[in-house]
Amino acid sequence: MLSPQWLRSFATLAELGNFTRTAERLDLTQAAVSQHVKRLEDALGQLLVRHPRHVELTPAGHALLDYCRELATADQRLQLRLSGTDAEHGEISLISPGSIGLALYPLLLDLQAAHPGLSIRQRFAPTSEVIEAVLANRYELGLVTLKPDDPRLSVQPFVQEPLELVVPAGAAVESWEDLVRLGFIDHPDGEAMAGRLLSRCFPGSPGVRSLPCKGFTNQIGLILEPVARGLGFTVIPRFARKAFARADTIRVVEREPQVVDTLWLLHRAEWPLSGRAQRVLKCIEVLQNDKNY
């Protein structure tokens, strides 16, 4: 194990190139600095070529200096992670379903642009993976569509999100037969979402499995592309529809009753949120308060 004090003496000597100035900066004797370098050379081989007025690093010395820099960087990262009160530096980690994730990501980027010391790490995932990732402390914040009951988690309602029946802009949908004519654009949660919404909006219908399937994609940002091109209809959560850039090419069919899901915010209950996470929650409150979302 290399002593941090030896490494500090070596790194300072490499910077200043002189034993006397190194000793003065570190408030040590020159003999102490020489002893630290000797201990390192006993362990690692020749690190310096000593000239009358300066020192020169050998290849091994350059390798050790790189190691010292890596340690300093790792120490800075550790200090940032441990400094929970610092709201303007460090990593923001959030894991959520794709629909709400599409709405959150631009807000998080706005936050990072305002505070360049922050780093955004966001992942889209189903509820089971979100819970596991937060419990394993791989992500500080998570959003899920089903409320977990694990006592290790702090859970609170975040926002409500309706399911929406989305059709091409020019399509007229008044009956089940109109949906049959259009055909269904499926996605990983498509059948379940469509089943929940369509069974209420079109009671007595044969069900979503009776509809012709006109396409499938597992990329949430692409689900509405075939709908926009007139190739079918789909059922998706509102935030996914709001994130679609070409709003004029699609239309939401408003029917009662609605199906509305509650999204739940969760984090570990045993320790407080970092200052960064608290700043994020303040930033994304707009999703709860702005009716445009």
Rank of each mutant, 00 (worst) to 15 (best):
L13N: 12
A14F: 02
A14T: 05
E15S: 11
E15F: 11
L16R: 15
L16Q: 15
G17H: 09
G17W: 08
G17D: 10
G17M: 06
N18F: 12
N18E: 14
T20L: 12
T20K: 11
T22H: 12
A23Q: 07
E24C: 01
R25M: 13
R25P: 02
R25C: 08
R25G: 04
R25H: 11
L26M: 11
D27G: 07
L28F: 14
T29K: 07
T29S: 15
T29M: 07
Q30L: 04
A32P: 03
V33R: 08
V33F: 08
S34M: 09
Q35A: 14
H36W: 02
H36Y: 11
V37Q: 03
V37E: 03
K38W: 14
K38Y: 14
K38H: 13
R39C: 10
R39V: 03
L40P: 06
L40H: 06
E41N: 07
E41Y: 04
E41I: 00
D42F: 03
A43I: 00
L44D: 04
L44N: 00
G45M: 01
G45Y: 09
Q46Y: 11
L47N: 02
L47Q: 06
L48N: 00
L48Y: 09
V49R: 13
R50G: 01
H51T: 04
P52R: 06
P52C: 05
P52E: 09
R53F: 15
H54M: 03
V55A: 02
E56H: 04
E56L: 15
L57M: 12
L57E: 07
T58L: 06
T58M: 09
P59W: 05
P59M: 12
A60R: 08
A60S: 12
G61F: 11
G61Q: 06
G61N: 04
G61M: 10
G61L: 09
H62Q: 14
A63W: 08
L64P: 01
L65S: 01
L65W: 06
L65V: 08
L65G: 01
D66S: 09
D66V: 05
Y67R: 10
Y67L: 14
R69S: 12
E70A: 07
L71T: 05
L71A: 06
L71K: 10
A72T: 08
A72V: 03
A72E: 15
A74P: 01
A74H: 09
D75R: 11
D75P: 00
D75W: 10
D75L: 06
Q76R: 14
Q76F: 12
Q76H: 14
R77T: 08
L78E: 08
L78A: 10
L78I: 06
L78C: 02
L78H: 10
L78Y: 15
Q79P: 02
L80Q: 13
L80H: 06
L80R: 11
R81E: 15
S83G: 14
S83T: 14
G84Y: 01
D86G: 08
